[in-house]
């Protein structure tokens, strides 16, 4: 089975996000990017399937900042192929455009099962997995945690609902699944092994096709939510803060006095 995992780089939310002078986009000059956490889960699910049932795992990404190291990390974790699509800048910032570029690339890459993150922190115009499925004419299921083969031509996918309820679907191959979580926490590739992969393995490169779809909407203002919000911030040393919190909880009858 050929499993293809499209991944994308997104701003690392651990860092402060700055808005550019136009007020419509992030200030990307100092932005630190990382693999989208849901894509990381999709990579893990693909590798788990490969480890258990045998498969070839191909990771593919648009050539955006720091993507090389991320793709080498995927190879170090055990992916069989890593492909970067050059010149896909026009698709950035739109899931629909990204999906259209990926769909064209996948025409030339064997894919029985496509696993990608169910969402990303920046997909304002919707989810890549569903748009990709539609562009390829394939069935899709979103918010999946847990994929198992069901004979040679189908997989079983579990879709999560609220309250811990899940629906189990049998989905014909080829298909696209939007992964919420892998069955196990994503494996770790030590830096030494990533370095080794950088020295001994090669990334494949292909030209990105022009997107034939876009978001259909234009951001006119990007802003932080109302400063301060609702919380009354308690200041002081940890001991002082503990005193204040204790007094609040005591006042509400939430601790014994």
């Amino acid at each position: 089975m050929d499993i293809v995992v499209p991944i994308k780089m997104v701003p690392d939310l651990v860092e402060e996000l700055e808005i550019d002078s136009e007020g419509r986009d992030l200030d990307r000059s100092s932005l630190k990017l990382r693999i989208s956490e849901w894509d990381e889960q999709a990579v893990e699910e693909a590798l788990l399937l490969r480890d258990k049932h045998g498969a070839r795992v191909t990771v593919i990404a648009l050539d955006t900042g720091d993507v090389d190291e991320t793709l080498f990390t995927c190879l170090a974790k055990g992916a069989d192929r890593a492909i970067k699509l050059l010149g896909g800048e026009a698709a950035q910032g739109s899931s629909r455009a990204t999906a259209s570029v990926l769909a064209k690339a996948l025409k030339g890459i064997p894919h029985d099962l496509v696993l990608t993150g169910v969402q990303a922190v920046d997909d304002r115009d919707g989810q890549v997995a569903v748009f990709l499925a539609e562009a390829l004419g394939l069935p899709h299921v979103s918010v999946v945690s847990g994929v198992e083969p069901a004979g040679p031509n189908a997989v079983v996918a579990r879709q999560e609902y609220a309250g811990g309820v899940m629906a189990e679907f049998e989905v014909d191959l080829p298909c696209v699944l939007g992964i919420q979580a892998a069955r196990e926490a994503p494996r770790y590739a030590p830096v030494s092994r990533v370095r080794q992969a950088m020295k001994t393995l090669k990334l494949e490169a292909a030209a990105a096709a022009a997107p034939d779809a876009g978001a259909g909407s234009t951001v006119r203002r990007l802003a932080k939510p109302d400063a301060g919000g609702r919380a009354e911030i308690l200041e002081g040393s940890p001991e002082e803060v503990a005193e204040k919190l204790y007094a609040i909880l005591k006042g509400k009858g939430l601790v014994k006095s």
Binding site: P11, L13, R124, L222, K224, P225
Partner: peptide, 11 residues
């Protein structure tokens, strides 16, 4: 978006 950190107003 961005984990709830930013609001994007779009036409």
């Amino acid at each position: 978006i961005y984990g709830g950190k930013l609001l994007a107003e779009a036409a």
